[in-house]
Every structure is written in structure tokens, then in C-alpha cells.
Design a protein around this nucleic acid. Structure first.
Lengths: 225, 225
DNA sequence: CCTATTAGCTACCTGTACTATCTAATTATG
DNA sequence: CATAATTAGATAGTACAGGTAGCTAATAGG
């Protein structure tokens, strides 16, 4: 398969494929001469994974590179690939270690994690992400106690439990690892989208009585298609 | 309160505050002379909300402007403010209306929503987001049937139900509306982070037996603090 | 042999979220 | 009263992300 066919098969423009090659997201094809390289099904697959992480997972290119490097490293156990993915996904959160509010939020996050009995590395950046959310809720006057977060944690744990059951652990490593990464990234988005849909629906149910007469005005505000 | 005090109180640098004023995210202070304006507690509050939407919610400035405009529009019902927030949050998803795969994914998304009995506007961009995720999973060979998505939907619905109960519906409009927006954005992130934590924990539990001997090597890969 | 395609390279472009600087008008301070 | 500091408002510049475009030399296929 030549680059033009790879482009056609994947829907990704040639210059973009070249960009991904430069950035080390996509392995080079097998060089058959100075101006020819041969690409295969693995490249199509890889491109699909890249686009999934980029468009659905909203990961920056640099993070995708790290994730894919871990996926390709045969020496890493599945758990460590997943760990790398989690590290790469977690956005930098600029902790202010000498800020009192920050320390309290971080302590609250750590407390919740240990109460739940979750096995999370002490240096996991995800802890900081949780602390950031907790701190933000505190500052906004909606304090996030462990009490308030526990339902979210339980729901998350139960969904993840189910999801883990569907990973083909005993198939080829690559399949399992990709399924894990997709689980982390794409299913995260699925849950987020469904939550927003549920939110809109709940809001419609709850408020429909209160606003009865206002629908006509609202219709005018509808964005024109 | 002058701009320098506003900056100190909120932790946002003066040039950034000026930028938010220019961009219409923050209302101007009360002009007391050609070179003085007076800011109040509302400005501090607004800045905190902006930073929450930006840093935790990862919303682009343009979306934040739309959300805040809706929050400030006293003529909009709470449901419509929330709708605006949902519209603003949903990233553009570039649907290809003549792509067969896309149409199938979109149909699957619509089917799931109607099966669940959710009240979602037909033109809601969130439908496209769900369709995008479904299409991506299809392409990656992990087809997302309604069956597979239902547990996520149920969990989302139940969490949202609880969350709605905590909104102070009968307090001042601004408080309720802000709580709704924060619920949409910040609690979404909380759930996402908790899901990734649960994922890491589950992975640790499941794989610890399989990798026993590899921990030493793994420790060396730990990012240096 | 001639046209099209390709790898590898460098340069360029667009959008986002700031940052910096400048000006003129105040306001506070010694 | 003079002088230093602060401010609003405006313009311009920066850094990064994610591509996109064009160039050159080599080669493949007809």
C-alpha cells in the first residue's frame, strides 16, 4: 500500500500522515527504494487509533505519542501501558504546593482514594486532577466532601469493573492493550456525553412545568441549522 | 476594589483580567473617572467561575462567553441557560451527512436516547457527539451497541438525578443557574477523573499477579519527580 | 524517455490564550 | 506642588498546537 492509498483508506490527508510520521505517531512504512515505502493494515489501524485518541479523546499529539510508544513497547506489562496512558492523559495541573487551599484539597482527594481502598500510585497525576476539581468546588462555594463524591466513585468503579471484564486478556498483547487504551479514553468520553444528555433530559423534565409559557420565546433562540 | 486588588483577590494576573474584559467574559467595573473603575465581590465570583470553566472544564474562551451570556440573561429560564451551556460545551464534531457509517452511528445514538426515554432536543449537538463516539468504537472493532452503552446511561442518569436534588431551585436565580452550570462542567470532570482512578486501581488489582517479577523494571520507568 | 508519485525537508498558516508595551489621565505621596 | 505610581483602553507581540504547502531529487510505470 502506498501513502496515497493509505490516505484513501483512512480518510487522513497525505500531509497529515507525513506530519504524524515526523512526529513519531505512525511508524514509517517498509522502505522499498529511496522514494517508495510500503504501508500495511497495521498502519491503517494505527491511524484509526490516532484519530480516536485525537478527535474523541481530545488528547494532544505529544500525549498520543507517549501512549503509542507504551503500546508498542513489548517489555511493558499491560498495567504499565495503562499507567503510561493515564499519565499521558492527565493534563498538567500546576499545583501550588505552598497554597493552603491546595493542600487541603489534595488531602481530601487522597483521603477519598484511600477510603475507597483504591490502589493508586502516590505520585499519580490523576490525584492532582481530583484535588484541582475539589479545590475548584470549594472555591465556588459547593464544597466537595468525600460524602458527596462517593456516589460518583461507586458508579465509576462499577462501570470500570464491567469494562475490564470485556478486555480480551488472553488474546494477543496488542489487541488487549489497545482495548485498554480505548477503554480509558473513548469510554470516558461516552460516559461524559451520556451524562450531559441525562442532564439535559432531567432539566427538561424538571423545568417544563415552571416555564410552560416561555417555549415560544425559546424556540426563537434555537440556533438556525 | 481596584483592578490590582481584584487581581490579588482572584489570583488572576492583571493583563489576563484586562483580556477577559476585552473578550466580554467579565463585566467592566463601575467607572469612577477616566482612569479608575471600581470592582466588587461579583467580579471576584465571576473570575472564579471563569477559571473553573477554563481550567477544570477545559472550555475555550468563546464557549465560556456564550455560557456566561446565558447565565446573565434574566429572560432565559434555567432550562434554557442549561441548554445554552450544553450547546457551548459540545465541541464541533464535523458530521459527514453522506457517510454511511456516520448515519448508522447517528441512528444508533438516536435509538439509544429514545429507548431510554430521554427528552433531548432533536438538534442537540450532544447527539452528534454520542454518534461520533459510537462510530469511533465501530471503526476500532469494538462495536458499541445500545446494549453495551446502557449501563453507562443508567449510571449517568442516576448521578444526574442526585445532582439535580442538590440545586437550590428556590434561592436566587443566579445561584441556581451557576450551580447548574458548575454541575454540568465540574462534576463532569470529577466523574471522568474518578473513572480513570478506578481504572488504574482495577488494573493494579487484576494485573498484579501476572507481572509479579516486573516491578523492579517498572520502578525505573517511573517519571522522576 | 517522459510523466506521475513519493520521501524527506523546510517553511508557512491558523487559531487560542494570553503578555507586553504604550499613552494619557488621573491619584497618591513626600 | 511636584513627582511617582496606578489605571483604562488600545495595539502589538508571543508561544504553542495542529496541521498545510511547497520544494527537491529519486524513481516507477507506461
Amino acid at each position: 500500500m502506498r501513502i496515497s492509498q493509505l490516505s484513501a483508506a483512512s480518510g487522513v490527508p497525505i500531509p497529515t500522515i507525513k506530519y504524524y510520521l515526523r512526529e513519531g505517531l505512525l511508524p514509517s512504512g517498509e522502505q522499498t527504494s529511496a522514494t517508495r515505502a510500503e504501508y500495511g493494515e497495521a498502519h491503517v489501524r494505527r491511524l484509526r487509533l490516532i484519530r480516536a485518541l485525537l478527535e474523541v479523546g481530545r488528547l494532544p499529539i505529544a500525549s498520543i505519542r507517549k501512549v503509542l510508544a507504551a503500546v508498542d513497547d513489548e517489555d511493558l506489562s499491560m498495567h504499565h501501558v495503562l499507567g503510561t496512558a493515564h499519565y499521558a492523559i492527565a493534563p498538567e495541573v500546576a499545583p501550588h504546593p505552598d497554597d493552603e487551599d491546595w493542600r487541603r484539597a489534595r488531602a481530601e482527594a487522597d483521603r477519598l482514594i484511600s477510603e475507597l481502598g483504591w490502589r493508586i500510585e502516590p505520585w499519580a497525576p490523576t490525584r492532582d486532577e481530583l484535588a484541582q476539581a475539589v479545590q475548584t468546588l470549594d472555591r465556588l462555594g459547593m464544597p466537595a466532601t468525600g460524602e458527596a463524591l462517593r456516589p460518583y466513585a461507586r458508579a465509576a468503579a462499577s462501570l470500570v469493573e464491567q469494562e475490564m471484564g470485556t478486555i480480551p486478556m488472553d488474546g494477543p498483547r496488542e489487541t488487549a492493550v489497545e482495548a485498554l487504551v480505548i477503554g480509558t479514553v473513548v469510554h470516558g468520553r461516552v460516559l461524559d456525553v451520556l451524562r450531559r444528555l441525562a442532564h439535559e433530559s432531567a432539566s427538561a423534565r424538571i423545568f417544563e412545568a415552571r416555564q410552560a409559557g416561555k417555549d415560544c420565546q425559546a424556540e426563537k433562540d434555537r440556533p438556525t441549522p
